[in-house]
Simulated assay, not measured.
Amino acid sequence: MPKFDKSVSRIRFFADIPRFVEGTCESPGKVTVTPERCEYVLGLGPCGRVVTELRYSLDSSYLTVTQTSYPQDAPEDVEVELLTLIKRLHDVTGGYRSVDPGASGDQWVSVQQDRIDGLKAIRRAREKLKEIKQFTYKVQEITGRIETTHI
């Protein structure tokens, strides 16, 4: 089976999960296998973090689910605004000048550069809070079908 990597908004399946059950003085511990529903979705997760990216890869032996998440109170994602401002500033300083009324061109460029610097600081703070987790399951332990919702 070929390996591939797909971005999804949801993946759900059942897997037989081995669990160790502690023993007592009279009997040793043992491993039990219980079927468990495994579901990963974008958005607020049971751990209290917001999952922003969800990917899975599958080969003949393993299913790996990778999720990227941030705490609920993490700064907003500013990537689109940042790239838009950088492009706009580049267009203006590259010869095309469309300045705000009442502001000199240099003053407008300075204001835009300050905003870009602020957005870069927000992006750095957000990246420090990013968490990437991988969950790997043996294909032989998966029972039934794997359901996915693609973005």
Rank of each mutant, 00 (worst) to 15 (best):
M1I: 12
P2R: 13
F4E: 13
F4K: 06
F4D: 10
D5Y: 06
K6N: 01
V8N: 00
R12W: 04
R12Y: 05
R12F: 02
R12P: 02
P18L: 08
R19H: 12
F20C: 05
V21Q: 14
E22K: 11
E22A: 12
G23Q: 09
E26C: 10
E26F: 15
E26Q: 12
G29T: 09
K30I: 05
K30T: 12
T32L: 11
R37E: 10
C38Q: 14
C38V: 14
C38R: 08
G43I: 02
P46A: 13
V51I: 09
E53R: 07
L54K: 00
L54C: 01
L58G: 01
D59F: 01
D59S: 06
S60I: 09
S61Q: 15
T64E: 14
V65D: 00
Q67E: 14
Q67C: 04
P71W: 08
Q72G: 05
E76Q: 15
V78F: 03
E79Y: 08
V80H: 05
V80E: 11
V80T: 15
E81G: 04
E81W: 06
L82N: 03
L83K: 14
L83D: 14
T84K: 13
T84P: 02
T84N: 13
L85W: 14
I86F: 02
K87E: 14
D91K: 02
D91E: 14
D91W: 08
R97T: 09
D100M: 13
P101F: 13
G102C: 04
G102A: 12
D106I: 11
W108F: 15
W108T: 03
Q113D: 10
D114L: 11
D114C: 04
D117F: 03
D117T: 08
L119E: 11
K120Q: 15
A121H: 07
A125H: 07
E127M: 05
K128T: 06
K128M: 01
L129K: 05
K130L: 10
I132F: 02
I132P: 02
I132E: 12
K133C: 06
K133P: 00
T136V: 11
K138Y: 07
K138F: 06
E141M: 12
G144F: 09
T148R: 01
T148C: 02
T149H: 01
T149P: 00
H150P: 01
